[in-house]
């Protein structure tokens, strides 16, 4: 589904990603783990071309999407949920969803506001509230719902569990599993290993812009050294 090959990305002159390579198979849920500043967000942004890699390739369903403008990539069925949420504060919940709306895709469920309100009941009550008045957890739900309106085949989630209450984290995990069951492939970045393990079956570990580990959570836990050196705070 997604193939990242030897990507090198920069912020200005600062080299952030070094030859990052990995792939995500159809129907998989993969967690990209690493500390603050390890390069997780940059990986996701480099996939969507919000950060343009200096070298390397990104293939989505066999198609080279490097250098395509982000909106074309989104239209191919690649949904992105940013870490900072970036909901439109002056638009209502319903209007936020409208911005994300894209045509239906064959072989995938069609997301409508009504279906999303079933998935996120809190949002249903607040559909006419301005985005800026939502709580942190509600904003996180809204940003996911907004991206789902594009009926993505692959969902990139940047730290979905960050900065929200533990109860909502639970709900978030259920949501991600439900999406996976509905046929959406998921790549999420996380610092929270416990959360990641409950939603993903495979882990990637990134540190200082290098991929250090690529394997199952079982293998990861067997290798105490890896998680100690790259994940523990």
């Amino acid at each position: 589904m997604l193939e990242v090959a030897a990507v090198n990305s920069f912020y200005g002159k600062a080299h952030i990603l070094f030859d990052v390579s990995f792939s995500v198979g159809k129907g998989e849920a993969v967690a990209l783990l690493g500390r603050n500043g390890a390069g997780k967000s940059t990986v996701l942004k480099s996939i969507l071309q919000l950060v343009r890699p200096e070298s390397g390739k990104v293939l989505f369903e066999g198609r080279d999407i490097t250098r395509l403008p982000p909106h074309r990539i989104a239209r191919l069925g690649l949904g992105y949920v940013p870490e900072e949420r970036r909901i439109f504060a002056d638009l209502t919940v319903s209007e936020n969803l409208e911005v994300g709306r894209q045509p239906a895709r064959t072989g995938l469920p069609l997301w409508t506001p009504e279906r999303l309100f079933e998935l996120f009941p809190n949002l249903a009550e607040r559909r006419n509230a301005l985005g800026g008045t939502l709580s942190g957890g509600e904003q996180q739900m809204l940003t996911i719902a907004r991206t789902l309106m594009g009926n993505p085949r692959l969902l990139l989630l940047d730290e979905p569990s960050e900065g929200i209450a533990p109860v909502i984290v639970e709900q978030m995990a259920r949501t991600i599993r439900a999406l996976k069951d509905a046929g959406v492939t998921v790549l999420l970045s996380e610092q929270n290993l416990r959360f990641a393990r409950t939603v993903a079956e495979r882990a990637l570990i990134i540190d200082s812009g290098h991929i250090r580990f690529d394997g199952s959570f079982v293998d990861l836990e067997a290798d105490a050294e890896i998680s100690a050196s790259y994940l523990a705070v």
Partner: peptide
């Protein structure tokens, strides 16, 4: 709605396929 959204965050509007 898209115009108002773009007034607030152009890049995000692009990332949503607009």
């Amino acid at each position: 709605i898209l115009i108002r959204a773009a007034t607030q965050d152009r890049e995000m509007v692009g990332a949503l396929g607009i």
